[in-house]
Amino acid sequence: METHTRKKIEIIVDAPLVNRITREIDQIGATGYTVFRSVGGRGHDGSWREDQLTGTQQKVLIKIIIGESRAEALIERLSSQLERYSCIIYVSTVEVVRAEKF
């Protein structure tokens, strides 16, 4: 089966800031993305878990699969915000089946 190389970008960010990130994703013209809830974890500021009341520290994982040039454009846009939003971004190369979808 033929597959095509694309970039997968994963972003971990506090729930209230998700709209800011997805707006950037829309602006580079990505066709889609998926948002995942998380249950708990630990980072620079200590442990956090599913944050029952405030939702302020609830972490969310956003996954996007796009072509290389758009991936670079997105990372460029987001990198200026990395420090302020204390979010985590990493990129991997993946093989997709239907090239026209991404």
Binding site: D14, P16, L17, D45, G46, L53, T54, T56, Q57, S86
Partner: peptide, 22 residues
Amino acid sequence: SYIAVPAAMRLALPEANPAVYL
């Protein structure tokens, strides 16, 4: 406050450490 203000602060002042105020 621990509902309305934290959410607003996270948006408006992402630099501030939420662990402190919460």
